[in-house]
Structure formats: structure tokens, C-alpha cells
Design a binder for these strands. Sequence first.
DNA 1: TGATTTAATTCTAAAATAAACAAAAAGCAT
DNA 2: ATGCTTTTTGTTTATTTTAGAATTAAATCA
Lengths: 226, 226
Amino acid sequence: MFKETKTHEVTTDVVILTIKDAKLKVLLVKRAHEPFKGKWALPGGYVRLPETLDDAALRILKEKTNVQNIYLEQLYTFGDPLRHPNSRVITCAYFALIRSDDIVLSFEENTEITEVKWHPVDALPALAFDHKEIIEYSLKRTRERLEFCPIAFQLLPQKFTLTELQKAYELILMKKLDKRNFRKKFLSLAILKELDEYTKSGSKRPARLYSFDKITLDSKRGHFFS
Amino acid sequence: MFKETKTHEVTTDVVILTIKDAKLKVLLVKRAHEPFKGKWALPGGYVRLPETLDDAALRILKEKTNVQNIYLEQLYTFGDPLRHPNSRVITCAYFALIRSDDIVLSFEENTEITEVKWHPVDALPALAFDHKEIIEYSLKRTRERLEFCPIAFQLLPQKFTLTELQKAYELILMKKLDKRNFRKKFLSLAILKELDEYTKSGSKRPARLYSFDKITLDSKRGHFFS
DNA sequence: TGATTTAATTCTAAAATAAACAAAAAGCAT
DNA sequence: ATGCTTTTTGTTTATTTTAGAATTAAATCA
């Protein structure tokens, strides 16, 4: 049962989601080599021998976005023998939510990547491997998570308005929400800190700013404790 | 990024849960060889090159219980470099719910197993590897699932009483439920078929028998469609 | 046989939660 | 000052959940 057989390759791919220009977007990299040369793919790479799966995903995330300490959850492990055209590669997929301001996309020169870019999830290009399926599943999971814990705060700046928060929910859930009920529900949860600041209204009435309060997360299992 | 490196071993372990003697139990096997010789462990084995992860889990399940076509869902992939004392073994864990009547436990002779047995989840022996953690996580996941879809029907015989159904819920959720409200809720879901049969009452008033109706499942993702 | 016990079942009221809905307030532009 | 746009707030209604009380059917016991 536990004899020595080295047969599979194990990678991790990370679905990194953000909100940018009022759109839900995913970070993709363009592949420099075959297979799928020139195609867009999820950032990913081999899991190294001395690191945990979580650490591998965190490393990939840091390489591409230079962010740390964010919401990162194991999504699903995809192991169809035919998902990679050349060999048997099993990938343990993760997904992360980050705020895209104050983030500079980067990748090392001479790697197997020629470009890094945000893509709207509702207009994805042709993707390498089964990465389209992975992204779609991550969206489904994100929706499920959102109904339990307010992970949307990972997508927003430190200070935000309730309208911005609602917009994030609407983008992920893909449906309109009632403004009054949304506000009422969130205020009753007592996880928002009401600030004495307001938006410097470009025009229109200024909106009060809030920040999330008392939220820590166990990114390994995707559950919150407040 | 996708160079050829064969470094990890990939296994699957299956948490098989059932209800037996009014207890929630998990199927364990006793290991014949090192590491953890003589210790109890989850049934598991290597993922073969031409099979999907799901197929590997189904194969393991069939080898030990000879059941097929049941609820089987990918649980989580455990990849701590130190989880196996000898080499780097990543395991993709699954969990399954089955009814234990009309099931004969079996294992092939001359394998690495000396015994197969049901163990109450609230009184587990010392387990090999990180299998205790895997079982605990499967219980947590099962509880979460139960709040959405009635997977408890996998644990019950074809015909059952509402009290038996409730007992299954109480065992998994580890809390008492209100009899009237439990009944009301389930009947309103319209997934039960009311039979014209009753328990041959050992004593007390006979209870009506029900069967589940119109339930199919997508075991790959753990979601139901009715 | 009839009273008692146990569990199943039904009915109903109260409480809590979610959904639906409209009007006033604050800044900016003209 | 008026009009425009966006934020902010409260009430009512429907739905779901929880809780209380009573009835029914069979088994046991006096």
C-alpha cells in the first residue's frame, strides 16, 4: 500500500480575485512555452518538497502580487489524468481575495511567463489546461463563502462606504441587493467600525466611511472567528 | 514552471461514515506493516496513473465495503511534508456516507491490512499519520453539508421513520432537535415519500415509514439537484 | 377490561427573521 | 434658490423559526 512509487507531479494553481474598475477580475499569466504557449493560465507552479501546500500557494501569490497575509483557501484538487497533455499533473487549487489598489503586478524575468494581467471573470480568454473550470469553481465557492462570512472585506480598501461593500457583494453574487436591507443586516452584525470620516464627495452627498473590525481568519480552512 | 520533476507520492484516503448501534462510526483498517504497524488508519491507497482522483476513492471504497453509487465527496488535500515519516506523501481525502446494514466488510488476503472494523467517532483509537485530523475535518464538513442538503438519507435504510431520520441528524450535529419542528420542516421540503406502511411496533405506537424521493446527487462536488 | 405509559402525530400561538417598500437629507451644479 | 444625484433612515408585511398544548395509537400493567 505504501510502497515507493514516484508517479505524479503535484502543482498548485491560485485563483486570485479582485475588484477593479467595478468588475470582478482574476489574475492570469501568459505562458511562454509549450504546452499552451501564448495562452493565458492561472499562476501556479510545482509544490516543493519541504513546503506545505498552503506555503506553496502563498509563495505563488507573493511572487505575482507581492501580497501576504490575505485570505487564501484551498479550493479543490483537480486530478484528471488527461488535464495535462504531457504527463500526469495533479493540481491543488487555491483561491485568494485581494484588493488591487496598492498592488504592483510583477514577475521575474526569464521565467516562463511573458505577461501578467487582470481579466474580468465574465470575459475570459481561452485558457490553458482546465483552468477555466477551476476559475468557475472558485467563483461558486466564493459565493458560498460570502453567505457565511464577510470575506468581501479582503476586496475593499481599509476604509470604505457601505455602497462600495454592497457593490462587491453584488458583483460576486451576480444579483442586485436591496440597499436598505443590506445596510441594516451589516450594521446588525456588529463587525463594522463606524468612522467619523466621510468621502470627499466628488459631488452628491458624502458617504460615511467604515472599516472592518474584530475579524481574524483561519485561511487554511476558510472559516472565520470573530 | 512545468519541467519534469517526479517528487511526490499521491494517495487518497476515504473517511467512510455510517450509523450503527445508534452511533456515528467510521471505517478503519489495521496496518500490517511499518510505518504505524498495528495502528488503525483510514482505508487508502495510491492514486493510479490512469484514474481520476474520484475513481481512486471509489475504488478504495469498493474494495473495503463493496458498495458503489453512494455519496462520495472530495474533502481536502493534506500535504504537510512531515505527515508521512518516510517520504513526501500528499493525500487527497474523500468522505462517504453509507448505510451499514446489508454491508459485509472485506479485504483481500495478503494485503497490508489485518483487520477492518467500524469505530465510533467519539472514541477513536490512536491513528496513523494525520488521520485523526482528517476524520475530524470530515465530521465538520458533514455537519455543514447537512444544513443544506439531506445527505442523511445515505445513512438510513430505504424505508425509515421520521424519528430515525432525526436521530441521524442529532448524531451528526451532536445536538438535540425539536421533534415537531424537525418533522414539519422535512415534510415541507417535499422530498419524502409517505408510505402506507408502519413499523411493526416492538412497543408503543407504530410509526409511519417514509422513503426519500426525487434525489440525485453530484458526488464530485457535493451538491444536490432535485 | 380498563387505566397507565410511551411514542407518534397534529394543531396553534408566539417570536424572530427576512423581504418589500418610500421619503427626507446633504452636497454640488446651474 | 432650484434641480440633480446619492446617502441615509423607518415601517409594514410576509415568512420562517421556535415553543406550547393536546390528540392518537399501541403496549404494558393492575
